[in-house]
Design a binder for these strands. Structure first.
Lengths: 102, 102
DNA sequence: TTGACGTGTAAGGAGTTCCTTACGTATGCT
DNA sequence: AGCATACGTAAGGAACTCCTTACACGTCAA
C-alpha cells in the first residue's frame, strides 16, 4: 500500500469534494462517480488517493464498495494551521495584507 | 499575477518548512535558501508559489528581498478542517480506523 | 565606473498528476 | 450457465511539478 501524504490528498478540489459528500454518510463508488463531471475511473483514482491518505475507508458489500469518511488525518492538518493562528489573529499579518493588495 | 490555490501551496513539504522558518520573523531570500538542501533558484520558485497563494509577502530592501509570513489564507484551511472536527472527535471514525489497520 | 553581491527568471528535462478509453474480475439475477 | 452490474486497474498521453544550470538585472562599494 503506497501511502499518500494528507496534504497532497487534500490538494485537489475533486478530492475535497468527495469528502464533502461523505460527510452525509457512506456512499457507493458509483454514486460518488455520478456526482462528478469526470469519468468513473477518474473518481476511482481519486478515491484511491484518499484511501492511501487514510481519509476514506472502503467496505465491500457484495459487488458494491461503500466509502466512509475517516477524518482523523485531518486532525494533524488542523493542528498545523492552528500553529499560525496567532499570526492571522494579530496585526503581524497586516504588512502582508497591504503588500498583497498594492 | 498567476494565483495559486492555498491547498496546493501547502502541499509541498519544502513550502511548509519555509513558512515554519518565517514564524520567527522575516528572512532574506538568500538566508532561506541557505536552510535548504536544494538550490537557491528552487527555493526562489517555492517562494513564488507561496507568494501567489498570499502566504508570504516580499519586501525589497536594497538588493535584498525580505520575506514575511502572511498566515491569513490559512484561516480558510483551518475552518475547512474544523468542519470535520465532529467526525474525528466522535466514534464515527472508528470504522475507518479499524479498516485502515486490518 | 567597474566589479561583486543578491536575487529572480529562462530553459530544459525527469518524474508525476490526472484525465481518458479499454479491459479484467467478482457478484448477482434469471 | 449466461448475461448484466459494480467496480478496480492498465495503458497511454497531455499537462504540470520541481528540480537543475545558465543568464539577466538592479544595487552597493571601492
Amino acid at each position: 500500500m503506497t501511502t499518500t501524504d494528507v496534504y497532497e490528498a487534500i490538494a485537489h478540489p475533486a478530492r475535497r469534494q468527495v469528502m464533502e459528500v461523505l460527510r452525509d454518510g457512506p456512499r457507493r463508488a458509483g454514486d460518488l462517480a455520478g456526482s462528478f463531471a469526470m469519468s468513473r475511473p477518474a473518481v476511482s483514482q481519486h478515491l484511491r488517493v484518499l484511501r492511501e491518505a487514510g481519509l476514506v475507508a472502503e467496505v465491500r458489500v457484495g459487488r458494491e464498495r461503500h466509502y466512509h469518511l475517516n477524518a482523523s488525518p485531518l486532525r494533524a492538518v488542523n493542528e498545523w494551521t492552528k500553529r499560525y493562528q496567532e499570526f492571522w489573529e494579530s496585526r503581524l499579518d497586516e504588512l502582508g495584507r497591504i503588500l498583497d493588495r498594492p
